[in-house]
């Protein structure tokens, strides 16, 4: 066997072993609110919506890092949980159609480490948002036309 083959074998098996270990142990899963509640302390990704009826607690003058809000399931509005996020305000939280929360459910709330917001304004190709926009501009221009 050539030297290069030995190196090849070692490196490739190292890479494969690393990949397998990282998928088996380190990765997390996309779950629902119910699943997160059933497995407290497990790191999960959850796609949720903001419950706009419950208050969003963020008072930068008291604590610029503490944010808390109520989340509900994307398809199931009856599944709810309180979320605490300790990295400050989430931009576009109020208008995002969907949030992907990353964190753990513990002590009766979801301790969120990271958030991704999915906003209609980000989706430039989203025709629903665009339609709304057209309706808005045309509504605005209507009175001017009648004058």
């Amino acid at each position: 066997m050539k030297k290069i083959h030995i190196v090849l074998l070692v490196l490739i098996s190292g890479a494969i072993a690393y990949l397998i270990s990282s998928f088996k142990f380190a990765s997390s899963t996309y779950d629902s609110i119910a699943e997160a509640k059933a497995n407290p302390g497990k790191f999960v990704h959850i796609a949720v919506r903001l419950d706009t009826l419950a208050p969003v607690v963020y008072d930068p003058i008291k604590d610029a890092n503490f944010l808390s809000f109520q989340a509900m399931g994307v398809d199931s509005a009856d599944q709810k949980m309180q979320v605490i996020y300790r990295k400050g305000e989430i931009p576009n939280l109020m208008i995002s159609e969907r949030l992907v929360l990353k964190g753990k459910y513990e002590n009766g709330h979801f301790e969120c480490k990271d958030v991704q917001t999915k906003c209609p304004s980000k989706y430039k190709d989203d025709m629903k948002a665009a339609e709304k926009n057209v309706q808005k501009t045309t509504e605005q221009s209507e009175p001017a036309k009648t004058l």
């Binding site: 003058i61 604590d63 503490f66 300790r86 990295k87």
Partner: peptide
């Protein structure tokens, strides 16, 4: 780091406090 001393942060000890509010 939010160490202004004026406002008491609410979070636990390991939480990042990377935001600072200024009047």
């Amino acid at each position: 780091n939010n160490n202004s001393g004026i406002f008491v942060p609410l979070g636990g000890k390991e939480d990042p406090k990377e935001n600072l509010t200024m009047l």
